[in-house]
């Protein structure tokens, strides 16, 4: 499994939404089918679908009832969803249709997807080796070391987004947001009733403020069981993905079991990093 390195989060997201242009294109003018055979072969379309992006699949489905039935088959959307998230099929069962997961997964500033299947390690430090704190509560861990371990995390595919959030001080409508947040959610989250109706209760697990001057703001999420994996270690190879000192664009790194972001800060900027 090669590491997936992101030069720029935004650029990468755009690339992913548009499936890569392939080597060839049939530019011959459309011609009516010969009558002796037909395109109505399900097997053919199951194969072709593997090379079409989601939006092209939908347009194909809207051409006729036959295509609607064949293309909306959920096995196609499972393939496409995992393909575009660049992740292998998780062993866990999903509670929703893959089509719905696909449509709910692709309209954010996407970093990528990763797999969790144990506890999770959150940290704001990207210097190796990762040290798991030994305090007894999450709050204490966060306060003392800026990192913590969370048990009881839903396993399966997680999606990581980088979001711009307006700062709480100025609520200008013209502002797109200046606070960067690493947002991670289970792929099924948006489809749960409780989430949609807003009936769930949420809990702030803690926060960690950095008072001293720092060169950059960063944060990472690791699957504890795979913390020592070679692929996860790639996150600590900062030279390979973090921007040069003057580059203030956010950068991200995602591997099969980890995700990290870093944004270099201008001098004199304070840093606020809450989790």
């Amino acid at each position: 499994m090669g590491k997936r390195q992101l030069q720029s989060v935004v650029e990468h997201m755009r690339k992913r939404l548009r499936s890569a242009k392939r080597i060839c294109s049939c530019t011959s003018p459309p011609q009516p089918s010969r009558s002796s055979f037909s395109w109505y072969e399900e097997d053919v379309w199951t194969e072709i679908a593997k090379f079409l992006d989601g939006r092209s699949l939908i347009k194909l489905a809207v051409t006729s009832k036959w295509f609607q039935r064949v293309i909306m088959d959920d096995s196609i959307w499972k393939f496409v969803c995992l393909r575009d998230l660049q992740i292998p099929a998780p062993p866990q069962h999903v509670d929703f249709k893959w089509f719905n997961l696909y449509t709910s997964a692709f309209d954010w500033m996407r970093i990528g997807a990763f797999l969790l299947d144990s506890s999770v390690f959150l940290t704001e430090k990207l210097s190796p080796p990762p040290k798991i704190p030994n305090e007894d509560t999450v709050e204490k861990m966060l306060q003392s070391s800026g990192c913590c371990v969370l048990d009881n995390v839903k396993s399966g595919i997680w999606i990581a987004d980088l979001q711009l959030v307006r700062c709480p001080v100025c609520e200008l409508n013209t502002c797109d947001g200046t606070m960067q947040t690493l947002d991670a959610r289970h792929i099924e989250l948006f489809l749960y009733d409780g989430y949609q109706k807003g009936s769930w209760e949420y809990q702030l697990i803690g926060s960690h403020d950095v008072k001293e001057r720092v060169a950059g703001a960063s944060g990472a999420i690791f699957d504890v069981k795979n913390l020592k994996d070679i692929s996860s270690c790639a996150v600590f190879n900062l030279n390979s993905w973090v921007g040069k000192i003057n580059d203030l664009h956010p950068k991200a790194m995602i591997t099969l079991h980890a995700v990290a972001v870093n944004t270099n800060l201008q001098e004199n900027d304070g840093k606020e990093n809450s989790k």
Binding site: R18, S19, K21, T27, P30, L52, K59
Partner: peptide, 20 residues
Amino acid sequence: CRAVASAIQNKSVEYVRKFF
């Protein structure tokens, strides 16, 4: 399959109908 896919990738519904 890639050849067929790239011929209709992000084309309009009308184009796809005509193509096939």
